[in-house]
Write a protein that binds this DNA or RNA. Structure first.
Lengths: 109, 109
DNA sequence: GCTTACCGTAAGCCATGACTTACGCAAAAC
DNA sequence: GTTTTGCGTAAGTCATGGCTTACGGTAAGC
């Protein structure tokens, strides 16, 4: 489904505080929608909508268990963002080192 | 200034497409506000506002050079988000492995 | 000193999206 | 078969925030 996990979608998904709270609550393990909503300050339908966004971004995985749906973190989505940040980190560090050379700043070079 | 670089602020900052475009344009090296806005489909003040958000999140560093201000990527901000994702990845993988054991899935085990 | 270049800030407008209630559907319980 | 539980979807409301134009302020150029 949403296994492409583009960094843009993941960043957009993790931008919302409620969605980050959902992700945090899912870190210990999978939870049903009701259990998830029970510890959040929003209604259950709101949680469902957020879960859709998170799943669509590839951050969550869902599997049906009887009448309930268990949501859990998907390593693939997290990995996609990590890869993006690795490249960004590389460029940021290179730029930092370049700037360090250009600016004396009396640090001893 | 914003060297604390909380993951929440960084995620919120990187959620906007324009701000991601700014970050992308800064990957090769530092740029002034005018040069930055010149390659973006928004006005210069809009870029200034985005730069403020990015700086506040700890993702960008600024240093004055005459009448212009050079903005560049800050490794610290990127690192903060990487650290957050490392922990998230750890939990996601653990949950994935636990689920793999619980669900036979008739894949050969 | 005056002009020009470069930039940040303020005020206002408008679209995106997060939340709510109401509804419909599927699977378990009995 | 009927009821109950658990969940997703639809429609509508309202706040957040991204964009614009207008303005003020500082450093270089002449």
């Amino acid at each position: 489904m949403g296994d492409v996990s583009k960094p843009e979608a993941i960043l957009a998904a993790l931008a919302d505080p409620t969605r980050r709270a959902i992700v945090t609550r899912l870190r210990p393990g999978a939870l049903s929608v009701g259990a998830l909503a029970d510890g959040l300050p929003v209604s259950r339908p709101a949680v469902s909508q957020h879960l859709r966004v998170l799943c669509d971004a590839g951050l969550l995985d869902v599997h049906k268990s009887g009448t309930r749906r268990l949501y859990q973190l998907s390593p693939g989505g997290v990995q996609a963002l990590r890869t993006y940040l690795d490249g960004l980190w590389d460029d940021a560090l290179a730029g930092f080192l370049t700037a360090a050379k250009s600016s004396p700043s009396a640090k001893g070079d």
